[in-house]
Amino acid sequence: MLKAENVSMRYFRKTGEANHFYAVREASLGLNAGEVAVLTGRSGSGKTTLLHMLSGLLTPTSGTVTLDGADLYGLKDGALSRLRNQRLSVIPQGRSAVDTLTVLENVLLPAQLAGKPGDRAAAERWLNTLGILALADARTGELSGGELRRMAIARALFQDAEVLLADEPTGDLDDANTALALSVLQSAAKERGKAVLIVSHDSEASRYADALYRMDGGTLERVE
């Protein structure tokens, strides 16, 4: 479904002799519907960089990313943004809330950016699943890190896209919520046929993997 072929990302920074280095080097991977892929690796190994390239947010230095055969970076602004809105959902690392909006409005935002009112009941269902329905009308500025993370997960699931890319979705979560988040992502793959990629330090995550990848110094390798 979503396929990366030999994607590389070169950044300019003085490293030893050279003035540039590869954050990701010639990485190839494919995500399939109904499967959970898990990507682990040490901090700074290039996981986020790869995920950004997979989600149409960062133009690779070389290589291609295709969704059902269509090259993401060959698309025009409008088409690529439509694709990010409807076919790819991303749970980014770090904060990703629009602070002038409430939690519920944040979850509904992908629909509203597409010019639709959005299914309120569905949004509230996802908030409920992730245990933050009580916060629906709170401003995101008041939320804890774990609450924000669950809001981002709820939003990505609400988007209901075919591909779901999660960057450290359990980063700020306690054990119970980590288990909850991972099982929700897994059931998105198993019950609703999504192609899921989870980037995680958490050894817990690899237990959910259909395919396990490891990243080391920009080089991707499939472990199992």
Partner: peptide
């Protein structure tokens, strides 16, 4: 900037 990046992430076009 980050707020705007999130809007792009969720499907706003650059023009939008």
């Amino acid at each position: 900037r980050r707020e705007f990046a999130v809007l792009l992430l969720l499907g706003t076009s650059r023009g939008g």
